[in-house]
């Protein structure tokens, strides 16, 4: 099994068309938890389809409660790292969409320089990436940083 072509990775809007500014702006309009989480659920549903054939152990992100898979391709021209993520939990998928908006289609140096914690803090979602939450999101972020460190 080979990974999807780089073009398929590049088709993801997160981190390209959809920017952190967009999400921050949307969040400002949403004033209660129901609206905010409905938006996160929508983000989760809008993640590009993840190839079923890649849902295997080597792409598995070990979390506690939900299953998370992550694959990546590097564009040899500009060194940008393209990511695809999936989970069987929709809120985790939605939060993965936020992570992708922040870290997808970035160079290794850009990823390493990003303060993801402060962005999650601004979105009032920091609890989801805290060390005490066993949802795999923190492991997801650590893995992306490790991929960046290798490339």
């Amino acid at each position: 099994m080979s990974l999807p072509a780089l073009n398929e990775f590049k088709a993801s809007p997160f981190g390209t068309e959809t920017t952190v500014a967009d999400i921050l702006e949307t969040f400002e309009f949403l004033d209660d938890w129901e609206e905010r989480y409905s938006y996160i659920i929508d983000l989760g549903k809008s993640l590009p389809a993840f190839p079923e054939s890649e849902k295997q152990e080597k792409n598995y992100v070990h979390g506690c409660q939900s299953q998370v898979w992550l694959i990546h391709q590097v564009d040899p021209d500009d060194g940008k790292i393209y990511l695809m993520i999936d989970s069987d939990a929709i809120i985790v998928k939605g939060l993965a969409a936020v992570v992708l908006t922040i870290l997808n289609a970035k160079t290794s140096a850009e990823i390493m320089a990003t303060d993801i914690e402060s962005l999650f803090d601004k979105l009032d979602l920091i609890r989801h990436i805290s060390a005490t939450r066993g949802n795999g999101l923190r492991a997801m972020i650590e893995l992306i940083k490790a991929i960046a460190a290798e490339n």
Partner: peptide, 19 residues
């Protein structure tokens, strides 16, 4: 997913176990 249920109940102040 059970974790979705747990997360959204917590938003409402309700503590359950999931997993």
């Amino acid at each position: 997913h059970p974790s979705d249920i747990g997360t959204l109940l917590d938003q409402q102040g309700i503590a359950i176990r999931t997993g």
